[in-house]
Amino acid sequence: MLEVGTSRAGTEPASRFLTTVDEVTVLLGTAADKADSQYSGDARTALLGRVAEINKAADAGDQQALYVQQYLLDRIYRLHTKLTDRETAEGSVVAHEIGRLLETATAEAQDRLIEPGLLEEAPTEPRAYLSWLKKTAREHRVYKHPYYHEFIRNRATEADLRNYVMQESVVDGRFDDLLAMMQVGTAGAAKMEIAANFWDEMGNGDRAQVHTTLFNKIFEVFQIPDEELERSLTANSLLNGNLAVLLCRYRSLYPEAVGFLGMTEWMAPDRFVQVVHAWERLGLPEVGIVYHRLHITIDSQHAQGWFHNVVLPAAESPRMRRAIARGILWRLNASATYLDERMPSVTG
C-alpha cells in the first residue's frame, strides 16, 4: 500500500487514518463498475463516514488529517488528469462521492479564511474592480513573502532549492493542463487569451521549449526520482495543487479559476527573480533555471493580458466579480499558509 507522508506540522504517521487510505487506494485502482458493486449499501455508507471523519479532524486543525484529506483528493484527481494503462475507478459513483466529500470540505475551509465582508467591498465598475483586486493582493501578507525575499534569495542552500522545486511541481509542473481544463466552454477574448497562454506553455510549437519539459530539467539537475517526489509533498503543497485542479475542472467554478490562475501568474515574476538570484548565488547548472528565467518575462505579459482580456470583460457581472475575487483570495491565503510552512528552515 502507499505510504502516507507527513508535513512539517506532524512527525508521526497518521496511523489512525491508514486503513481508510489503503481502502480508498485499492478502490481507485479497481474498475469503476466493480468498485461500485463492492461498495453499495452499508459498505458505501461506512466508507463515506470514515472519509467524513477525516474531513472533520482536518477542520478541527489536525495536520495529519489535513495531509490525508489532500493526499486522497490528489489521488482521485489523478484519475482524471493522468493517462494510465491500468484499471482505474474513473467514472465510479462511489469514487465521485468520496471526491465530492473531500472537495466540499476543502472549499469550505478556504472560504472560512476569507475576511468577513471583504468580498462585499469590491467596486462594481470593472476597472475600479481590477484596481481593487491588485490592491487587495499587494496588501496581503503573502505579497513579497519573506520566504522568497529573505530566505530563498539570500540563505537557501542547494538542498533548500531542491525541496522548493519538488513542492512547486504541484502547480508549475502542470500549468499547461490546468489551462487546457479551464478553457473548455469559453469564447471570444477570454478563450483567445487562454489559448495564447497555453501556446506559450507549449513552447510555441517547439517540443524542446515546452514549459513542463523545461521545468523537469530542474529535476534532472537535482536528480529527483518520482518516488522521492511522492514522499516529499506536504499537506499544504498538495492543497495548493488540488485547489488549482478543483477550480479548473468544474465549469461552475470557472470564474474562481480565472482569479486563482491569474493571481498565480501575477505573483510569479517577482518570486522567480528571487529564485534566479539564489540559483546564480549557488552556481548551479544554467540548464536548470531556464524555466524560471523565461517566466519572469512571460508571466508578467500573461498576467496583464489575463487581467485585461479575461477579468475586465467578466467584471461586468456581479456574480463573476465575486467569484473571481474568491478565487484570488483562495490563492493568496493558500499560498501564505504554504510559504509560512516553508519558513521554519530559516530559523531551524
Results as ranks from 00 to 15, higher is better:
residue 85 D to G: 11
residue 106 T to D: 07
residue 166 M to Q: 10
residue 151 F to A: 01
residue 146 P to D: 09
residue 178 L to P: 02
residue 154 N to F: 13
residue 114 I to A: 07
residue 97 E to T: 09
residue 113 L to F: 00
residue 171 V to A: 09
residue 106 T to K: 07
residue 126 P to R: 04
residue 94 V to D: 04
residue 127 R to H: 10
residue 98 I to T: 00
residue 173 G to L: 03
residue 88 T to C: 01
residue 109 A to Y: 00
residue 159 A to P: 01
residue 129 Y to C: 13
residue 101 L to K: 06
residue 143 Y to A: 11
residue 161 L to M: 12
residue 167 Q to R: 12
residue 147 Y to M: 10
residue 103 E to S: 07
residue 155 R to P: 13
residue 81 T to M: 12
residue 158 E to S: 12
residue 136 T to C: 08
residue 113 L to K: 10
residue 111 D to V: 07
residue 102 L to P: 02
residue 82 K to T: 10
residue 175 F to C: 12
residue 137 A to M: 15
residue 132 W to M: 06
residue 150 E to V: 10
residue 138 R to M: 14
residue 176 D to N: 04
residue 155 R to A: 14
residue 158 E to A: 14
residue 112 R to A: 15
residue 80 H to P: 00
residue 82 K to D: 09
residue 138 R to I: 00
residue 135 K to G: 03
residue 176 D to Q: 12
residue 159 A to M: 07
residue 143 Y to N: 08
residue 173 G to S: 06
residue 126 P to H: 01
residue 164 Y to C: 04
residue 177 D to V: 07
residue 149 H to S: 15
residue 111 D to R: 14
residue 90 E to G: 02
residue 149 H to Y: 15
residue 175 F to D: 09
residue 171 V to M: 13
residue 87 E to F: 09
residue 103 E to M: 07
residue 151 F to G: 08
residue 158 E to R: 15
residue 174 R to M: 12
residue 100 R to C: 06
residue 177 D to M: 08
residue 114 I to M: 02
residue 83 L to Y: 12
residue 128 A to Q: 12
residue 84 T to W: 09
residue 114 I to F: 01
residue 160 D to L: 10
residue 124 T to C: 00
residue 151 F to D: 05
residue 167 Q to F: 08
residue 99 G to P: 00
residue 148 Y to P: 02
residue 97 E to N: 06
residue 137 A to L: 05
residue 142 V to G: 10
residue 149 H to A: 13
residue 126 P to V: 10
residue 89 A to E: 12
residue 139 E to L: 07
residue 91 G to E: 03
residue 102 L to F: 06
residue 83 L to M: 14
residue 161 L to Y: 07
residue 160 D to H: 14
residue 121 E to Y: 00
residue 127 R to K: 09
residue 126 P to F: 04
residue 177 D to K: 14
residue 140 H to G: 07
residue 169 S to V: 08
residue 97 E to I: 06
residue 80 H to Y: 15
residue 87 E to C: 03
residue 120 E to N: 05
residue 135 K to I: 02
residue 116 P to Q: 00
residue 95 A to E: 02
residue 155 R to N: 12
residue 157 T to S: 15
